[in-house]
């Protein structure tokens, strides 16, 4: 909710516009949060390649002296930045009030590796557009939030090895005949502020109008209120939206590749190596598959092979 206010105020301040629908297609500068995304002059890189773990995973509760993990252990909790409206990944359970999902479980694995207790995790909901910023300036230890590892973001933060492969698709009304985003020229398509999806919509040659909302949940609200014709983002996120509205469906093939990584500050390469070691262990001992089945199995089918780790 705060994030909604923050982003909206920023939008309003910059554009002097009172409607929330701010097509970002024409003027990407409308959202300052999106600035990071639009500076595409990032050098070529292998966005999937991360830092190699050093040695084996230290025992929980016994972090190497002087490491950032030891600092976190002394603090008593791991601070995870994520959202609370991405169903299946990190959303607030309306019955219990707890934030839960695939991404949160990834964070719980890391907390368990540091403390021996997965509950020593503080969840901080962060504005979608500020995800790299909050990591870079140390407000959170890591961001796990269906976040694509790409070269532009690698310039500001480090990413773990890829923990999930996704690709952008399109959500439309159940009775729609549209089969792909290129059929939506001139129509409004929603995506979250500061997401790669927003930029991808604007880049489609037939010219759909990208509409930015503070989060994915608010895109579904805009869709249900008839303010946009479609929502386009990663198939994984869309699965969470379809699960909440039986009058929608996901269409088309993945038209982008979105490898998800855990964002960590460049100041703490030891944490990145540690997280990669945790991911390595979870891929091997079946934890990854168990978490996948728990959250995504019902909507995306049986768990695939976990994405293979790549190191630089």
């Amino acid at each position: 909710m705060r994030r909604a206010a923050g982003v909206l105020t920023a939008l309003l301040l910059l554009t002097g516009c009172t409607t929330v629908e701010e097509p970002v297609t024409e003027k990407p500068s409308a959202a300052p949060e999106a600035a990071e995304e639009t500076t595409t002059a990032a050098p070529d890189c292998d966005a999937r390649a991360s830092l190699r773990p050093t040695g084996s995973l230290p025992a929980a509760g016994r972090m190497p002296a002087g490491s950032y993990m030891e600092e976190i252990r002394k603090r008593g909790r791991l601070i995870l930045g994520t959202s609370q409206d991405s169903l299946l990944f990190s959303s607030r359970n309306p019955f219990t009030g707890a934030v839960e999902g695939f991404d949160v479980d990834m964070g719980r694995q890391i907390a368990a590796a540091i403390f021996g207790d997965p509950d020593k995790l503080q969840i901080k909901v962060i504005p979608h557009g500020d995800r790299t910023k909050v990591v870079a300036d140390g407000q959170v230890d890591l961001v796990i939030n269906t976040m694509t590892a790409n070269c532009a973001r690698w310039q500001e933060v480090d990413f773990s090895t890829v923990y999930l492969e996704a690709g952008q698709k399109l959500l439309v009304a159940k009775d729609s005949t549209v089969r792909g985003i290129d059929e939506l020229g001139g129509r409004k398509v929603c995506a979250a502020v500061g997401s790669t999806s927003l930029r991808n919509i604007a880049a489609v040659s037939t010219g759909p109008i990208a509409v930015a909302r503070p989060g994915w949940g608010q895109c579904l609200v805009a869709f249900q209120l008839g303010e946009v014709d479609a929502v386009s983002t990663d198939d994984t996120v869309l699965a969470g939206l379809v699960a909440q509205d039986p009058y929608t469906k996901v269409v088309g093939d993945r038209f982008t590749e979105e490898p998800y990584g855990i964002a960590i500050s460049k100041n703490h390469p030891d944490l990145t190596r540690f997280v990669n070691a945790v991911l390595e262990r979870d891929r091997e001992n079946g934890t990854w598959t168990r978490i996948y089945e728990k959250w995504l199995g019902e909507d995306l089918g049986a768990a695939p092979q976990p994405p293979a780790a790549r190191y630089r």
Partner: peptide, 24 residues
Amino acid sequence: ADNRQGLPVGASYLATASELNRET
């Protein structure tokens, strides 16, 4: 209504409503 059915989109509706209240 969404909240009663356990749909997280309820929170997004509330955020949209709150925004309307405070901004307009």
